[in-house]
Amino acid sequence: MKNRNEKEFLALISEHEGLIHKICHVYAADALGKQDLFQEIVIQLWKSFESFRNESKISTWMYRVALNTALTEKRKSSKKVSLSFPSSFKDDKAQENVVDGYEENLNILYGAISKLTEVEKAIVMLYLDDKGYGEMEEVLGISQATLRVKMNRVKEKLRQITKSSQHGT
């Protein structure tokens, strides 16, 4: 039973690994921090996997656990499994687009997000992942009306930051 559960869980994680990596990329400061956070998120997901009853979407459950972990984590290094992590989220498309500044723009994007507050980071990640206000509310527990107001402020803030980054200021 445990084995079956573990197989299901591992398949689920492999399918949604990108989501966890994005959260690590946004909330951790360095490569070591990303590894730590990745491991902690996977452990917390595993711990709550048995109680997950498909009452909410998988992405909602994963976002809740991952954000709860990232926001409450005390950042310090410890014993860990050595994993190979890509330095950034590169893919085939990225490789093709290196010439026209894909990677540079991606760095600008993550750089801009790093300047936001912890809550704003969570909101903007959900927004960029095309989550509606309903799902954002389900994940964060903030009312939709408030999220709209907050989202407008975050969008403006992001625009300003990316604009100044592109102009090299």
């Binding site: 492999s14 990108g18 890509p86 498309k93 894909y102 625009r159």
Partner: peptide, 20 residues
């Protein structure tokens, strides 16, 4: 940079073939 452009960048980053 426009927000739609940011979304596009974000979407592409999720297609990454990660080595786990």
């Amino acid at each position: 940079m426009e927000l739609e452009k940011l979304k596009e960048l974000w979407d592409n980053s999720s297609n990454a073939s990660l080595s786990m």
